[in-house]
Amino acid sequence: MPNNFGKAIASGALAGVLWGWVALLVGSLSGIFMLEASFAQSIAVFAMGGAIFGVVATGFIVAGLQLRLFKRVVAGSIVVSFCLWLVLRVGGAALSTMDADRYHVVTYETAQGFVLALCLGVILGLLLRHRENNAAPA
């Protein structure tokens, strides 16, 4: 794990941007949801959304490592990313029960989101581990 929290956050933002573009690519290929905005605009929006997701997930990963909730960075990152996505998804389900017209659930999109959450964990974990290995003295 990077010793410097700030550097870990920067890694999280980078991983999030990469993940946002992976999500855009996967979504475009799967055809589960057709983009309504232009592809150029989506590149920026997905990078921003991914960076936000990545930074928040990194905050929890660093906290988990500090509290020794897990030892392996990649495995911990996958668990944290999935849990963060799940919490948001459960919140979305709660909103859906209150206002089904505005927040309606699409099962295929949920399945895609689940897979993408695991992807974020892998990307984040690999990037954080790479940082850790580079920071360690030879």
Binding site: L24, G27, A37, F46, W85, G92, Y103, H104, G113, F114
Partner: peptide, 22 residues
Amino acid sequence: VVAYGFDDAFHDFRHMIGMPCH
């Protein structure tokens, strides 16, 4: 805010990551 769209900008992103949206 992004995940639930608490007011268009992140509409496509929300759909892609499986969050409920209209």
